[in-house]
């Protein structure tokens, strides 16, 4: 089929991704999203405080199931996300090129790196406990084992510049560790993030594990930072002033805070991500149990 130049294309209505569904903002608001040259791309939902709260409810509801799934199962699902993303490669190359003003080949490299990042974190789900957990040789007749567990519901402010690889790089570790997430997409370039919702929805990822909001970062982040049912916040997408404000609000229920890192500001998301983002939203649980005694004899062999 050759493309007819006179055929009118069908636009996509970009919607939020909350609780496994694709709602519009309850506020009914949208804002104009343009490419780097100012050309109109789409109208994105401008999320409200209510949208943010709804997303937290969805994330909380999904937490029991997701954190209770086996690490192997979570790994399988993260790998499935990579598979689905690879299949939509062309779509994301176009969206990332438009969003970030990249050439097609550079955008392709970004999307490939994002696919590989899902694969990287798919492999971590059942290994992180073997890196940061373990038996502790306490001086007494006790079995003593430390195990990492997810913190809970985590708000993720995705980076403003790297609308896709940056987004995946901050989101994947949060859910790989077993948390559920409320993601605030890049304000200027939210479209790749909103499209990612379509990938997540077809990857066996339970609804509510990832919730994606678009809009004005400060407007959405403020209620999330002060929300008493949010356990952690990644401030990557906030500037210094906003980050400080949100960190103060987050102190109310002692949210785990991941501050914007100097390296994040460089905009180079292609480097080895290490484990920092995985451990940022993990708790360590230590279990003691007496080992009893068999008497002095036992066996010397």
């Amino acid at each position: 089929m050759s493309e007819r130049s006179d055929r009118l294309s069908v636009f996509k209505t970009y919607k939020l991704y909350v609780g496994g569904k694709f709602p519009r903002s309850e506020s009914g608001r949208v804002y104009e999203v343009t490419d780097s040259k100012g050309k109109w791309l789409a109208n994105a939902p401008q999320s409200s405080r209510k949208d943010a709260r709804d997303a937290v409810v969805a994330a909380r509801k999904a937490f029991g199931g997701w954190s209770g799934a086996t690490a192997y199962n979570r790994g399988q699902i993260l790998y499935r996300i990579a598979e689905m993303l690879e299949g939509r490669r062309d779509q994301f190359v176009r969206e990332v090129a438009e969003a970030e003003g990249l050439s097609k080949s550079k955008a392709a490299a970004v999307v490939d790196a994002a696919v590989d990042r899902w694969v990287w974190y798919a492999g971590w789900t059942d290994k992180i406990a073997q890196i940061v957990g373990g038996a502790n040789p306490v001086a007494g007749p006790f079995f003593n084992l430390s195990t990492p567990e997810p913190t809970g519901v985590v708000t993720v402010l995705a980076p403003q510049e790297s609308s896709f690889l940056g987004l995946v790089s901050v989101l994947a570790p949060v859910i790989a560790a077993g948390n559920t997430a409320v993601v605030v997409a890049s304000a200027e370039s939210p479209l790749p993030a909103l499209s990612l919702g379509e990938v997540l929805a077809t990857s066996d990822l339970p609804g509510g594990v990832v919730n994606i909001l678009s809009g004005r970062t400060a407007e959405i982040a403020a209620p999330l930072a002060s929300h008493q049912d949010v356990n952690g916040i990644d401030l990557t997408g906030a500037d210094a002033e906003l980050a400080k404000e949100l960190e103060i609000a987050a102190a109310d229920n002692l949210k785990r805070v991941s501050r914007p890192q100097a390296v994040d500001g460089d905009g180079d998301w292609s480097t080895d991500p290490g484990t920092r983002r995985l451990t940022a939203f993990l708790e360590t649980k230590t279990v003691w149990h007496p080992t009893g005694a068999l008497g002095a004899s036992g066996s010397s062999y």
Binding site: P141, F143, H289, P290, T291, G292, L294, G295, G298, S299
Partner: peptide, 30 residues
């Protein structure tokens, strides 16, 4: 329990073992 351990370990081999008891501390001690 001592006798069980002594008999269990009385082998040239040492690959696997099983313990059946309701008592957690006995599991770990054995």
């Amino acid at each position: 329990p001592d006798e069980a351990v002594a008999k269990a370990n009385n082998s040239q081999y040492g690959l696997s073992a099983g313990i059946w008891t309701e008592k957690g501390s006995r599991i770990l001690a054995v």
